[in-house]
Design a protein around this nucleic acid. Sequence first.
DNA 1: GGCATAACTTGCATGCTATGCAAAGATGCA
DNA 2: TGCATCTTTGCATAGCATGCAAGTTATGCC
Lengths: 220, 220
Amino acid sequence: MPEKSAAGGGLREQKKRATRAALAEAAVRLAAEHGVENVTVEAISAAAGVSVRTFFNYFDARDDAFVVIDTDISARVRSTVLRAPAEVPPLDAVRDAIAAELAEAEQQHELWQLHAEVLRAAPHLLVRSLGAHMADETGLAVAIARRLRGGPTDVPGTTATDEDARRSLDLYPRLLAAVAGTAVRVAVEHWSADPAERHFADVFQETFASLAAGLPAPPG
Amino acid sequence: MPEKSAAGGGLREQKKRATRAALAEAAVRLAAEHGVENVTVEAISAAAGVSVRTFFNYFDARDDAFVVIDTDISARVRSTVLRAPAEVPPLDAVRDAIAAELAEAEQQHELWQLHAEVLRAAPHLLVRSLGAHMADETGLAVAIARRLRGGPTDVPGTTATDEDARRSLDLYPRLLAAVAGTAVRVAVEHWSADPAERHFADVFQETFASLAAGLPAPPG
DNA sequence: GGCATAACTTGCATGCTATGCAAAGATGCA
DNA sequence: TGCATCTTTGCATAGCATGCAAGTTATGCC
């Protein structure tokens, strides 16, 4: 029964963390061994030493147990984006924030490996996973929007193209957040098709480079 | 019991299309009226005039009924992309193919509107919708890849940067397909938040313009 | 037309997923 | 210690999803 990162306040809090982690870990290990579809909630609960009913106190749906390893990744991405120097372009800021998180995650290697394996065998879970992790796409969009408002030129007055800018501003953060998430997913999928060939970081950077260049046809 | 677009081969084929469409339409209408969570498979099946068991012959899961409205949109997009003149950049080809389909879809206005409404009220369905699009995504990626191979310069021999190009080629079509899908979703979401303010086509074009420019920070 | 075949639909049986409720147990605090 | 609060659990219930076998309907071939 491993604990989560920062050991929070009281005993209750710790126990909850431990239970959630135990359930998630049990789910992933069982799935790696027997295949996702052959793992029942009952089995997961038993392996974690709690009742089935308790499982559903922690997860809204069976699939969610396979999906969330670290709950607050998206929060960290948001705050990293906000802390980036003002002169860094938004796309770069998002890219670097995500890259940092991915590098971080690789340190929990073994479980992460299993997790990736499980997700690769179950595409519908991969969607759910990326959806869950960075996913409060809307949250990231808000962070980006805030970053833009408090941006480089600390805005004296309103310009002539004001209305036009505001409209763009609404659309742009949403688009950037969504596209970034998609890019990560594509990078992971492409890389995991043949993990040996290239480092993931390499694929990741190429993906974002293509985005930054406006998705031109590659030479060839 | 409306029929689908191009009336396919036999009577069976037609009936299947009709049944699937009836189920999907019933699902969306019931969801719009009573809320997604209050619509049972039984109700959908009854409204479509088939048994519950038959529902599951058409959809793997209840939620899938709310997600796919027109099955062969993606097929038409693919073929349009392939038919585009060779000198058109990939991103533009994809944009125009999708734009054409969307213009088409607006003729079924009312149902489409309902569908967007339902998805907006049910975030988890939107995730699932993503999943559905991902299936098409691979198909679109293949079309893009083929288009690139049979592209402008009809490839005499292999160049020096060959390996590099091949790696890019694998990643690029996937990325373009995925990002295009995401862009459409974002455009729809943004537009549907306030449909009166702008024409959808306008938002759509702005979205793809931002992509083509490499997602630079908007002026402001 | 009439028949054999393949495809589609249906009801039944079964097992898993998910939620509400109330009782019992664990924890935190004075 | 004893009270207030949160958590866990079993039970009941409803809906979701699949396999199977039997009944219906289209299709192709004579």
